[in-house]
Write a protein that binds this DNA or RNA. Structure first.
Lengths: 215, 215
DNA sequence: ATGTCTATCTATAAGGC
DNA sequence: TGCCTTATAGATAGACA
């Protein structure tokens, strides 16, 4: 019963290390879940370790994909923004093109997501705290900042069968649209800063927390 | 003094939400640090939120790069292994597709980071626990499982001039292509295999903990 | 907004099954 | 190996500086 003051050191005993890993991972996910809920932070995790036979996605694989997609898009936006800032001017044609690009992206996203939905039932997901994030707050995901965690798992275990747990997150097309618009909005708020590095990281985008989304 | 039993709900008060975010994020990082140390789990985090002016890398940007690099390699290896092992009952194309989907998630991050890296000199890094991971265990990172966390930062800043800042000619066509391919790729994991999802998660890789790496 | 304090809640190491 | 239990270390909300 925690008589020991937690010696912050590698646990040499294999089984106890594994046990500790599981306990603490669970605790970590719970903390993430709470942070996510209380602060309107969207979060997800990918974990793999030598202690478990398969990679875990939290709160679900779908969520991970969503979060990373959003993240990537944001990065794309930033990238473009930065390039643009260097250009100092913008042609009408370019604007059209970009907007079309965005629109197209949205279509792609639609397709992607709907397809994922279709096959989601066949997916293996192991939401550690499904109640915390998948269900109750899935609807609020739209404009919330994501968190992504990746832990490599290792474990020579080949050809195991997968457990399948579905966690269908239906995406509201309207929300997605809104989200993309937000991203576009935000690719603008930087101009002033000269410090490139800072600038690069300072990309901000609409944050649209909905306090009433089921909490 | 925590008289309240932590009502797991969105904190409506802006300042207290921010305060809570910072406290809890700190706590989360500490937990990660401990998990990392005690269980030989390599971990890193990328965080961005509306509550802080810039993206944070934990334990350091360098570490994040290392961890993701390793992750990428592992995925490559897994990919090959799976392709060889399962060629018999799954079409090569399918496997490629599936694995690539996951792999790309990493590439996505990787790409961003390398990007960031270019301007790293102008960067302000804020390693939360540099002592824990950067120094003492960086050398042991090689075979340890990584953890990656990403939190997007947002910022209600709407209504700014709405020009998409980018010249299509300046966008790396390759990247764009890749990006779109990725999106489209995901619209494929639906078709035949009902348990493909499971397959998606099944890539595994070797793990090589070194208990004597400075703990 | 940032740091400190402290009562209280939460996480969890060890044990036991 | 994995689940309980329980005592204790640790995290932290709210108050205040």
């Amino acid at each position: 019963m925690i008589r020991t003051k937690v010696k912050l050191a590698y646990i040499t005993n294999d089984s106890s290390r594994k046990a500790t890993y599981k306990k603490r991972k669970k605790g970590l996910m719970k903390k993430m879940s709470e942070l996510s809920t209380c602060c309107g932070i969207d979060a997800c995790a990918i974990m793999y370790s030598p202690y478990e036979s398969q990679t875990e996605f939290w709160p679900s694989l779908l969520r991970v994909e969503q979060v990373l997609s959003k993240f990537k898009m944001i990065l794309e936006m930033e990238k473009r923004k930065n390039m643009m800032n260097q250009e100092c001017f913008l042609s009408q044609r370019t604007i059209k093109f970009e907007l079309w690009g965005i629109n197209d992206l949205n279509l792609l996203l639609d397709e992607k997501i709907s397809n994922v939905d279709k096959s989601i039932d066949a997916f293996t997901m192991t939401p550690l705290y499904p109640q915390g994030a998948s269900s109750s707050s899935s609807s609020s995901m739209v404009a919330l900042p994501p968190i992504t965690m990746v832990m490599p798992k290792a474990m020579p275990k080949i050809g195991t069968e997968e457990i399948v747990q579905s966690d269908v997150n239906n995406i509201d097309p309207m929300k997605r649209q809104q989200w993309i618009m937000e991203l576009m909005n935000n690719s603008n708020n930087s101009s002033p800063q000269t410090h490139v590095g800072g600038n690069k990281m300072m990309f901000q985008f609409g944050h649209n927390i909905n306090p009433n989304n089921g909490h």
